[in-house]
């Protein structure tokens, strides 16, 4: 199977285990949302899948054993967007996006026409064309976040893993981002995004993973997982239907009450 498949994954920091016995799939061609309370391990899971955190269990990425991949191969396969963009040095937006081409570079670093095109399209997708020469350090939080997303887009990965990619985005760019991710999924990419807004999952998602306790509390199609009963048990607060969402199928929005 393509996509991402996880078997008996455990991970944590130092001596503290955050995730235990996680098994499940992010199907190819689907947009899967990771939901769960603060500290339920969403970021930990994405970091482990991205190769930045040692983990137990097995991870299969696009049919290949994750532990057998070289750094470069993994970088071509998986694009990760994390929460905190770096501000150590004043790289420009264009330089940061172009770093997304690192896994694709060749030995002699010949002029990479396809790379330049990928950088241009990534900037366009995140509406950054007018900011390309600006240092990241001078931008707003949302603009920085769009730059980091554009870097992953320029990477042209098969799998997108995004950790709260819309936390600093205004409604216009949030909509643009999830439309882009839906489109990427429709083109056969595997997309997983951790968010706090349940209704982003209700509106745009195909599948949902609900993390809770130290494991996976529920997973499956959006309409099967996002019910008042399941949400209440995971978040410890009651949920009531808010209305119908846009998009195809039965899409119910929720609010905590």
């Amino acid at each position: 199977m393509k996509g991402v498949s996880v078997r008996d994954l455990s991970a944590g920091y130092g001596g503290k285990t955050v995730l235990r016995g996680i098994s499940g799939d992010f199907p190819q061609g689907a947009l899967t949302f990771l939901l769960g309370p603060n500290g339920s391990g969403k970021s930990t899971l994405l970091r482990a899948l991205g190769g930045a955190l040692p983990h137990g269990g097995t991870v299969t990425l696009c049919g290949r054993d994750g532990s057998s991949l070289s750094s470069r191969e993994r970088g071509r396969l998986v694009g990760v967007v994390t929460q905190s963009p770096s501000l150590n040095f004043p790289f420009t937006v264009e330089e940061v996006i172009a770093m997304g081409r690192l896994p694709h570079r060749t030995f002699f670093g010949s002029p990479d026409v396809r790379g330049r095109e990928a950088v241009r399209r990534a900037a366009e997708a995140m509406e950054l064309e007018d900011l390309l020469d600006r240092p990241l350090t001078t931008l707003s939080g949302g603009e920085r976040q769009r730059t980091m997303i554009a870097q992953a887009i320029a990477q042209e990965p098969e799998v997108f893993l995004l950790d709260e990619p819309s936390s600093a985005l205004d409604p216009r760019h949030t909509l643009a981002l999830f439309r882009f991710l839906r489109q990427a999924a429709a083109e056969g990419k595997t997309v997983a995004a951790a968010v706090h807004d349940i209704n982003l999952a209700a509106e745009f998602g195909d599948c949902v993973w609900l993390l809770g306790g130290d494991g996976l509390a529920a997973s499956g199609r959006v309409k099967d997982v996002l019910t008042g009963e399941v949400l209440s048990s995971v978040y410890g607060v009651s949920f009531a239907p808010l209305g119908r969402g846009a998009g195809e199928g039965e899409r119910v929005l929720w609010r905590a009450v």
């Binding site: 470069r72 998986v78 770096s86 150590n88 770093m99 992953a152």
Partner: peptide, 15 residues
């Protein structure tokens, strides 16, 4: 360049 971004960005870029 990627390493100087910190936060394991370089790992995610295949470095």
């Amino acid at each position: 360049d990627a390493i100087s971004l910190g936060e394991s960005r370089a790992v995610f870029l295949g470095v």
